[in-house]
Amino acid sequence: MPSAGEFGFLAATLGELLAALPVTLGLFLASIALGGVLAAGLTWVRLRGAPWIARLVRAYVFVFRGSPLLIQMFLVFYGLAQFPAVRHGMLWPVLRNPFACAVIALALCTAAYTAEIFRGALLAVPVQQIEAGRACGMSGWLLLRRIIAPLALRQALPAYSTEIVLMVKSTSLASLVTVWEVTGVALRIISTTYKTLEVFMCAAAIYLLLNFAILRLIAVLEYRLSPQLRAAAPAARRAGAAAP
């Protein structure tokens, strides 16, 4: 049975881990944002670009989806810096920063997954609905913004929520490149105290709660994005209110 001392240790550990939570959140948000932008670009290029560019994008997606993130991160952080050209290049001020490097590695990886999700979602938008948009005189950006993107986004959400949860967990690798987020701090506490299971339980609880909160947020988003699936009354009210 845990004694008072052990509770004290758990409380202290939890406190130390929570202090690292902002780092984890920062890594997560920055890499999701950067990865999302990158993925949008990749998707566009793959669907619209010249064949050789599309092939390049496919190769990119293959490499970053097919190898463990740990290896990617190691090679991006330590490997790139071995080339003097990189060390003296324009990007060095960014690459020199461990946090920025971790975000880049995470974003490169998630962009590969997200691009696949986006592509699948775009292909799943019914052609008839796009044609209906064209029939109303929409085209280009307007068509994308008003018809294609909302439909595709709704389609992509379930898969994207899985990817987001995977990303939260992936940030735990950033301690490899000296960014001390929750898991890294947990490992560090274990190295000094050797209390593996207790420390990891605390870390698990934090990740579980974090992921749960994020999934709830996405569920709310999903609900708001799919008025057609909701009960008729509130949808009608919303439509009425939104009418110009």
Partner: peptide, 9 residues
């Protein structure tokens, strides 16, 4: 939820 939300390690 549990096995997808907790880090694999």
């Amino acid at each position: 939820t549990l096995f997808r939300g907790v880090p694999e390690l």
